[in-house]
Write a protein that binds this DNA or RNA. Structure first.
Lengths: 246, 246
DNA sequence: CGTACCTTTGACGGCTGTCAAAGGAAGTGG
DNA sequence: CCACTTCCTTTGACAGCCGTCAAAGGTACG
């Protein structure tokens, strides 16, 4: 059986080793791949949390709507990410989520999660580890915003995406595509659109990176890492060996 | 059996309903309550993640040490919190953690977690839900920092602690004790110590809250909530009914 | 080809950071 | 119990990073 025909296996294989039986169980539970268009809503804040999704290809983002109609970007998803693990243990969605590009998703109905927990402790642990990994990324982003100025925040963001894409085997050496607007980046980083534009220009003049409308290239990873105090070891997501007992 | 003799039951009972058997299993696995002094280190960044802890009483915090010897506060723990769920799926601790006050903790060895996952899907789900709840709180804090100025951040922080303490049955109406320094609060909120002090004064002049050295009192919860765009429903942590199948 | 959206640039103001010092509160040792 | 030290909080002065407003230039899309 081709493991990667089951979408969620890609996400979980970062954390646990899957055997044939695990893959069979997941295949039973997961719904087939679905094509989704750019701007498709995956879920909406306040609605029941009925599914989680594997993002097989394409980008997506999570957001809040503020009362004045603006949307506050909260999170960004790249191919291979597991979407909605946070929301799915609550009765209602905490965020809304929408596709940034065309893509392929594999839905996984919430109520089938208890089959995972009931029939395969290892898979349950893998899911839990994936959630913990996501929490670490968010924590890392919080630290970034709490302690860095605009240029360092941009450097950190650049490297976070760089390593997340590298983790799923993408070619990032010659720049990676970044299908979000500067307005959206500015919200992720807590700075204004205008100041973001200026700060990116400064980083380009320093020869640290180069950004075009839809692409971002890392030019000097060492100086970027120093500026953002970014250590990629955090992204190593080996499961604690104390938990690997099966 | 008195459920609350097993510390971790208090934390998990927010998310799932525990029966006698669940409590017995947890009692088997948990180590007994231990008194810890103020300033005691619970764990250290980089070291193996060997235990998670229930904080039965007392306050604690998680932090990073920066190269210049400063410490960046990342998270704050109140009585009843489950400490280290994030770290425990990784081989090494991502953060350090230290007691803010004297307290009582119940250690839970990491390697026994697989007994939870192996023998009780419900408890495993409860643990997972507790982790997801913590991630929601962090996300909420990230949104706070991304979109609010100093005064609104302080209002948000005030309310976050208010509702977290209320959730565990503390009396918060007449003010709650807050055993952390303004320097530490300023790091949690991403503003300078000096500016924090000034902004608190402004909030006091507006009659929204009152802060003394070790106490914080909410005076006008409606206006505070409006200022911080804080909606306490997020802190309702009922498990998704789609997952309650046992 | 025209419109809508995205990015850049300029000007200006203000929120916030830094430096410095003073006043309190708490903890320590005699 | 008091003197002393240390830590915490507050206040003032000043600079600067960053937000807002506005408009122009560029790009994508129908």
């Amino acid at each position: 059986m081709d493991h990667y025909k089951v979408c969620v296996t890609q996400s979980l294989s970062h954390h646990i080793e899957l055997n044939e039986e695990d893959v069979r169980l997941l295949a039973e539970l997961e719904e087939g791949p679905t094509n989704v268009k750019k701007h498709t809503d995956l879920w909406e804040a306040g609605k029941p949390a009925e599914k989680l999704y594997t993002l097989r290809s394409g980008w997506a983002f999570a957001f809040h709507c503020t009362e004045d109609g603006q949307q506050q970007i909260l999170d960004i998803y790249v191919p291979g990410d597991l979407l909605g693990i946070r929301d799915v243990t609550f009765e209602h969605h905490y965020t809304s989520a929408r596709m940034l590009t065309d893509g392929v998703i594999c839905p996984f109905p919430t109520e089938r999660l208890h089959h995972i927990f009931g029939r395969s402790p290892k898979l349950a642990m893998g899911l839990h580890a994936a959630a913990a990994w996501q929490q670490m990324v968010i924590m890392d982003r919080l630290v970034n915003v709490l302690s860095h100025n605009a240029k360092a925040r941009i450097a950190h963001f650049t490297l976070e995406i760089y390593y997340r894409l590298k983790r799923i085997g993408a070619d990032v050496e010659n720049g990676y595509s970044l299908p979000i607007t500067q307005k959206q980046i500015s919200m992720l980083l807590g700075i204004s659109e205008v100041h973001l534009s200026r700060s990116i220009s400064e980083l380009e003049e320093m020869n640290l990176l180069r950004k075009t409308r839809k692409k971002l290239q890392v030019l000097d990873i060492d100086r970027l890492s120093e500026l953002a105090r970014f250590t990629p070891e955090r992204f190593n997501d080996e499961l604690n060996p104390l938990l690997q007992v099966w």
